[in-house]
Amino acid sequence: MRVRVVFLAVCAVVLTSCGSGKNVVKSTPNKVVLESREEKLPEVPQLEQIQKPILTTTNHTEAYIQKFAPIAVKKMHEHGIPASITLAQGVLESGSGRSALARRSNNHFGIKCHRGWQGHSVTHDDDEKGECFRKYNYPETSYEDHSQFLLTRKRYANLFRLRHTDYKGWAYGLKRAGYATDRKYPQKLITIIKKYNLNKYDRIQPDGSLAAKTPSYKVSSHKVQKGDTLYSIARKYNTSVKKIKEVNNLESNNISIGQDLLVK
């Protein structure tokens, strides 16, 4: 009798090992019991849609732009920030969505916690070790917070006087307002916009149609040289001292060598 029980147990083990991996065999001295084991699905990263290249391109930056251009255009119509600027900042600040801060925290614009932030946060080494950065559940939230960050701070107020097609004015204005410490920040944004033709998104209408091109609005900058004054610069670019001060948010006529001034 004992031999028969052992034989049946061995058969049961062999049969169940050939079946689904979802069952576990548990044997006792007198019987064989099959217990159900629940399989756990692997966790999916929140930024998986960025990590996987879009089928139409193998370029990470192009894939990033394709993914987030609709969001940038939506925010442009809601808040008045050029979609080209938002996308260029996202590309530059997040490494096209591949930076550690973007992957870990969905923070695509390098926005730090700052006073009053009540959301989630994460520590990240930047200008200093272990700085506090904002953390979001979704990348889309990062885009909205980027808009609110610019809207709710007085130092960016002059930017919203510019047209949303004036991406050069916005690029230089962001640097003057203190968004970044990199002296070449405006040039880097403009280079990205030109390389990927991002200014085309600035002409997309709320209904998705493409607006007709308007005459270009020439925007240029002047790097202050030794001997320059606001008056001499104004004469050179056929503008006025008052206009230069207004555009550059200057409270006095004092300028310094190497300073970038927006002139129109």
Rank of each mutant, 00 (worst) to 15 (best):
S17G: 12
S17H: 12
N23V: 14
K26Y: 08
S27R: 04
S27P: 01
T28E: 12
V33Q: 05
V33M: 09
L34C: 08
S36M: 02
S36D: 12
E38A: 13
E39H: 10
K40P: 00
P42H: 04
P42K: 03
P42R: 02
E48L: 13
Q49C: 08
I50T: 10
I50W: 09
P53S: 11
I54H: 06
T57P: 01
Y64I: 01
Y64T: 00
K67E: 07
F68Q: 01
I71W: 10
K75H: 11
H77W: 11
H79E: 15
G80Y: 00
P82H: 07
A83R: 01
I85S: 07
I85Y: 03
T86V: 13
L87M: 15
L87W: 05
A88M: 06
V91R: 01
L92D: 06
S96F: 09
S99Y: 04
S99W: 02
S99P: 13
L101C: 14
R103P: 01
N106A: 11
N107R: 08
N107D: 13
H108Q: 14
F109L: 06
G110H: 06
I111P: 03
I111E: 10
I111S: 11
G116Q: 14
G116A: 15
W117M: 09
Q118Y: 03
Q118M: 08
H124I: 03
D125I: 00
D125H: 10
D127R: 03
